[in-house]
């Protein structure tokens, strides 16, 4: 995979919790071929899993008639992942989770997915579909994290 040109891999997942692991495995395989180190692959796997879980639970609202699209675009210096659902996108980003508030019952123990995604990849953006659906999250993870 040296002298890698842009390569695209697409996966379509059923709207069913657990199938995010298929996207994780695919992203991991592509990242390995691109030469990502093991720790970055683990970061990518968690970010992709959380993006797919959000698409399944919130975007497609667990509607099994819908599917989740995962498009991985391997570029020479980075891997871009788009996770596409049939939701309307997020209204506003939730606040950063606060463990003290969670422990004191002032905040739902859940709600950490978007925080983990943002913390684990180099770029993350949430885009609402123009037609009120086909919203997506776009993740970017760079091969050389420090190169700018």
């Amino acid at each position: 995979m040296s002298e890698l040109k842009t390569t695209t891999v697409e996966v379509r997942l059923p709207t069913r919790l657990g199938y995010e692991k298929v996207a994780m495995s695919t992203a991991s395989a592509v990242a390995k071929l691109m030469g990502f180190p093991e720790d970055r692959i683990e970061d990518l796997k968690t970010a992709v899993a959380e993006a797919c879980i959000n698409a399944i639970e919130h975007g497609n609202r667990l509607n099994e008639k819908l599917s989740v699209g995962v498009v991985l675009r391997a570029e020479p210096d980075a891997l871009e992942v788009k996770v596409i659902d049939d939701g309307t996108g997020i209204g506003k980003k939730p606040a950063k989770p606060d463990i003290d508030r969670k422990m004191h019952g002032e905040e739902d123990p859940r709600g950490m997915g978007m925080f983990l995604i943002q913390a684990l990849v180099d770029e993350a953006e949430w885009v609402s579909g123009l037609d009120g659906k086909s919203s997506y999250v776009r993740l970017l993870i760079k091969l050389d994290k420090d190169a700018e």
Binding site: E42, A49, E50, I53, I99, M103, G105, P109, G111
Partner: peptide, 29 residues
Amino acid sequence: NSSGIALVIQLLIEAANTGQKVYCFGLSP
């Protein structure tokens, strides 16, 4: 995943409310 982490946090809340100490081991890096 984040739902699993939320379960661990719920466990920690219950343990804190009963005065128990909780520790973890065996997590991957």
